[in-house]
Design a protein around this nucleic acid. Structure first.
Lengths: 211, 211
DNA sequence: GGCGCGATGTTAAGAACATTTACATGCGCT
DNA sequence: AGCGCATGTAAATGTTCTTAACATCGCGCC
């Protein structure tokens, strides 16, 4: 019946055809509904329409499923950050602002991915793949930091790694405190504006020209 | 037998004497060991030496227990931040640095509290008490921000609330990404140094004199 | 002093979940 | 055609969640 490609979905036979993908989608649905702790292996199986034992053919346990979700999350995250950065066009500073907005947009639009990536307690080195994907995503921010620092005179140019970590921490702090529905606190401004102002002040502190 | 005060602990009769406190301590132990998702109501009961049904006399469900833990966490957090700030002595800037270090120290020394407060998915308005405690803790940062901004000429003085939110987001970002054992990433410097540098650059961007 | 009541714990029981084992199915390859 | 491996099911076991019925204790009141 070829589920893998083709889109149609009807009754199925003994075999599902693409259970692994279906389980990952189920996890995303369920995490989005009730948080990373709010879904069980059995839930995912039910959602996919298979028996409670079926998931064990694809994942050792719930954590491995979550880890796989996190992996795909980092990959999508990297795609979005890369697209937002767009190699620094038309100017590093404008691209940098897009990067921050993309970070927040990802947290808001893909809360299930974000939860699995940062809040589910999955250690980043659960697998080499996961760490590599996380590193690639961070690499985008680091590259952006380098491009921005190139605008500074070499004399007072701080380490790009440090600046990237700073930017990441600001974005992550705002996203996890104020970025989503279950935000911790009402704000007098949008999370986007709050982050933009924060980054702006920070860059002024670095002495980036034109700010 | 007076458990409530007295410290001694021996065999107990039918009643525990102070089960609610014991359950909260149990939750802290277990969260510290295995993360906020890594303990069950039954675990806590076992740890306290009572039957699995006993906790229901004190908490509606697991979330109410976690919420109580978070409440105490915010209270302790506020105490520590207040002590670190020490009314801005000897100078606002030095006190501000202590505040940041106290934030990270709390996340590192009380990971169970920190998890319950920020990562367990307990909404801040689970109870009015919880929100109030959270607001009081944030109030310390806000007060510190106001004191710092007083050093600026009134003309270019940004809103204290915004600055406090910025500081909070930096601290929280660093604490949750790099602050603890299960940190997401190896760092070329300590989390404390990373945060101090970040705040310094930010304050320079604000134009705080003497930085 | 004894009675009774409310608070606090226990036992017991049913449902849901996790996890393993033995079994069933069917796709793909020769 | 038929063999073999991957994939799914069924059933069984142990754990947890949650409620309901019962037990015990502390404490106020007469």
């Amino acid at each position: 019946m070829r589920w893998t490609k083709g889109g149609g979905h009807g009754s199925r036979g003994y075999h599902h055809g693409n259970l692994k993908e279906a389980l990952i989608r189920a996890a995303l649905e369920l995490i989005a509904e009730k948080g990373p702790a709010g879904f069980t292996f059995a839930d995912a199986a039910r959602w996919a329409g298979v028996s409670p034992a079926a998931p064990y053919r694809h994942f050792r346990d719930r954590d491995e499923l979550l880890s796989d979700v996190a992996l795909r999350g980092f990959e999508e995250f990297e795609r979005r950050l890369t697209k937002a950065w767009d190699e620094g066009r038309p100017a590093p500073f404008a691209a940098f602002e897009r990067l921050g907005k993309a970070y927040l947009a990802f947290a808001r639009e893909e809360p299930a991915f974000y939860s699995a990536m940062f809040e589910a307690g999955i250690p980043l080195d659960a697998s080499a793949e996961l760490r590599a994907a996380g590193d690639r995503a961070f690499g985008v921010v680091r590259m952006a930091a380098e491009a921005l620092l190139a605008l500074l005179p070499a004399a007072n140019r701080p380490p790009a790694l440090m600046v990237a970590l700073h930017i990441w921490s600001m974005s992550h702090g705002i996203a996890s405190l104020f970025g989503r529905e279950n935000a911790q606190r009402k704000l007098p401004m949008s999370a986007e504006d709050l982050l933009e102002a924060e980054v702006l002040i920070y860059l002024r502190g670095l002495g980036v020209p034109g700010i």
